[in-house]
Computed example of a mutant assay.
Amino acid sequence: MGRTRRNILIGAGALALAGVAGAAVPFRRDMAAFRARAAPELSRLVETRHGPIEVAEAGEGPPFLMLHGTGGGFDQGLIAAGPMIAHGYRVIAPSRFGYLRTPLPEGAGPRMEAEAFADMLDALGVDRVAVAGGSAGAIPALAFAEMFPDRTAALFPVVPALMIPGRAEVAPWSPLAEWAVMRALRSDLLFWGAATLARDRLIGTLLATEPALVAAASPEEQARVAAMVESILPVSDRAEGLLYDNVQTNRPQDIDYARITAPTLTLSCEDDRFLTAENARFLAGAIPGAEAIVYPTGGHLWVGRNDALFAAIDALLTRVGWR
């Protein structure tokens, strides 16, 4: 999976070169809308031992911490966990290290993220929380559950993008490759061009989902996928987080899965092009008492499975009394 993700991220830079000439007016219009969705007044900054963390909240009820994946931010977290708001939960959605207004601290790693989230929860007055992590966000979610068992009511790694034992670690980028990708990721215009003019290719590569699934999905699911794609913009405000996640998902993590005691349900789709179904099955076997649900189709964006996926999460939380 590591090399696949790396090739996809490098390919995204080339994909972003899709023609954008003459697009200045719609680009400015769309970017204004995208920036408004992640406007600073919609979130707050909380100081932690590892620097400030940006966080937004929505809904009322038992707290549910949603850790977004690659390309995200608090806005993507709120989009992803929207069904939990409807189910009656208080969704807490931070911007992870390197995303939007959360800086990337020196020496950043999943354990530092977990500590920062614990400090953030202290500032919000939350002692215990159900934790979900999507894609690369599953790694700090797992770290949090291991490090803070008394604070973790339940754990949900969703399409978990991580390096499992037995896979070869991917060699780091060359300085030239890293420079080229960074240039592409800091160009909102180029990424907007790809998202606008080559959306199917972007969905199939960067988001690891079969575009035909989206085309055949309900209008509600198509709107959700569109919102997830658009939540990557402005990509220049998320570039450091994207590169950070690329490193973390391509290296083994110092997480003792056997020490995780929270009720755990991991979810994925068999056709996820990032191969997270294999990761979900690994976690179900490595975490004591964990369960896995692997849908036959849906890709990395779990297209057509959104209602079922969050209903399964709600069902486990109801079963363990987190309601």
Rank of each mutant, 00 (worst) to 15 (best):
G109H: 12
A143D: 05
D150K: 07
A132T: 11
A123K: 09
G134L: 14
G133D: 05
F148K: 03
D122F: 00
G125P: 09
A141Y: 08
A123G: 06
A132L: 14
F117E: 07
A118I: 00
A123P: 12
A114V: 12
A141M: 09
E146W: 04
D122M: 03
V129W: 12
P110N: 08
S135W: 00
P110V: 10
M120I: 11
A116L: 04
E115R: 14
P110T: 05
G109M: 11
L121W: 07
G137Y: 07
P110K: 04
P110C: 08
G125A: 09
V129H: 14
A116T: 13
L121E: 14
G134N: 13
F144S: 12
G125W: 03
P149A: 06
A136M: 11
D122V: 00
V126H: 12
A138Y: 05
M147L: 15
R128A: 14
D150C: 01
G134K: 01
I139F: 05
S135R: 00
V126L: 05
A118D: 01
E113S: 13
D127H: 07
A143H: 04
A116R: 05
I139C: 09
D150F: 03
G125N: 02
E113N: 06
V129C: 12
E146Q: 06
R128E: 08
D122P: 00
A114Y: 02
L142M: 13
E115Q: 14
D150S: 08
F117R: 03
A138N: 07
V126G: 04
P149E: 02
L142H: 03
P110G: 13
F144D: 07
S135E: 00
M112W: 05
A136N: 06
A130H: 09
P149Y: 06
A143T: 06
G134M: 13
A130C: 13
L142V: 08
P140G: 06
E113H: 10
E146Y: 05
P110F: 09
D150Y: 01
G134A: 15
M147R: 13
M120T: 15
G125T: 06
P140H: 14
S135Q: 01
D122N: 08
M120K: 10
F144R: 08
A123M: 06
A108L: 10
A141R: 03
L124A: 11
R128F: 09
D119R: 03
F117I: 15
M120A: 15
A141S: 11
D150N: 06
A108F: 10
E146L: 07
R128W: 07
A132C: 14
A141E: 08
L121S: 08
V129S: 13
M112R: 11
R111I: 05
A123S: 15
V126Y: 09
D150L: 05
R128T: 13
I139A: 07
E113M: 13
G134E: 02
L142D: 00
A130W: 02
F117A: 04
V126T: 10
L121P: 09
V126E: 10
P110E: 12
A141C: 09
P110R: 03
P140R: 12
D150I: 01
D127K: 10
A143W: 02
V129M: 12
A132N: 11
A138M: 03
I139D: 11
S135V: 00
P140C: 11
E115F: 02
G109C: 14
A118H: 15
V126N: 09
F144V: 15
P140L: 14
P110W: 05
D127R: 11
A114C: 06
A136G: 15
A143M: 03
A123F: 04
V129Q: 13
D119V: 07
